[in-house]
Amino acid sequence: MRTADAAAGQSRARPLWLAGALAVLALSMVAGLLGGAADISPWQVVAQAADWLPFVTVESGLTPVEQGLLYELRLPRVLVAAVVGGLLAIAGAGYQGVFRNPLADPYLLGAAAGAGLMTTVAIVLLPQLAAGIPVAAFAGAVGGVFLAYALGNTAGRSGGTSTLVLAGVAVTSFLTAIQTFVQQFKVEELQRIYAWILGDVGGGWEQFRLVLPYAVVSAVLLLLHGRMLDVLSVGDEEAVSLGVRAARVRFAVLLAGALATAAAVAVSGLIGFVGIVVPHVVRRLAGGSYRSVLPLSLIAGAAFLVLADLAARTVIAPAELPIGVVTMFVGAPFFVAVLRMTRRTAT
C-alpha cells in the first residue's frame, strides 16, 4: 500500500530532524564553551564537558584556572542561553498555534510589557536589590498576560482569539506607557533599565537554577500539546466536530506559554525575535505539524541563542554587545535567507 509506506516514511523523518537538531545544539554548546579563549582546543572542551557529567571521569588536560573559567563563567552562561532560547522559541510556536497566526510571538499578550514595568519599578524603588529583579520580571510577565486574558474574555466572546490579541496589544501599550512614565523618575537608572531590556544571559548558576524548574514544567506541558495544536489549526468549529473543546486547549497552551515566557524573561530580559523567527524556520524546513514544530523549536531556539550569545561576547571583545541586539541583527537577515531558500507556492 503506497499510503502506508509514504506515511511510514513521513514518521521516520521526524526522529531524523530531531537528531539533526540535537547535533546542532551540541555543536553550538561546544562552540559557546570555547568562545574566545585561543589556547583551549574543542576536544579539551568536549572532554571537560564529559568530565562534568555524573559517574564520568575524563582527563581533559586543562589547568584548574581554565577549568574554573569554563565551569563558573562559560557553562552557566551557555546553559542559561540555551534554556532561554528554547523557552522563547517553544512559547512562540505554541502561541502561533493558539492564535493560528504566524506573527504571534511570546510577548504578544503583555508578558514583555508587564515584565518591563515591574523591573523598572524594582530598579527605581530598590536600586540596591539586584536579586529582586528576576522576581519582579516574573511577576510582571505573569501579571501582564493575566490582565490581557481577563480583558480579552470580558470584552469579547469567551475564548475567542482575535479579541485576545487586541487585548494583548492594549495591555502592552498601557503598561509600556506606565513604564516610560516611571523610568523618568530615576534618569540615572536609565542605562540599567535599558541594559535589562536588551537582554543578558550572563547571570551565572544562580539564574540557571532559578529558571530550570519553570522551564521543565512549561516545556513538557507545551510538548504534550502538539497534537492538540494540530487539531486547533482547523478552526474552532471543526475542532468541536472532532470532540475537542478548543477554549480549553487554548487556555492550557497559553498558560504554559506564559509560564515559559515569564521564566525566560525573568533571567534574561526582553530578548526579541527568537520566539518568532525560530518556529518559522523550523516550519519551513520540517513541515507544519506542531508535533515536530514544538520539539524542534525548543532545540533550535536553544542553539540559536547559544550562538547569538557567543557572537555577543566575541564580536567586539573584550566589550560585549547586548544579546538582544545580536538576535535582531543576525536574526533578520538569516530569516530572510531561509524564507528565500525554501520559497514555496503561496500559502
Binding site: Q10, D230, S233, G288, S289
Partner: peptide
Amino acid sequence: ALPPDMTVFDYALLGRT
C-alpha cells in the same frame, strides 16, 4: 480551514482525534 503546511496524511489523521 486547511492548515497549508500540514501533510495530507497528518490532516486526515485528525479524524482519529
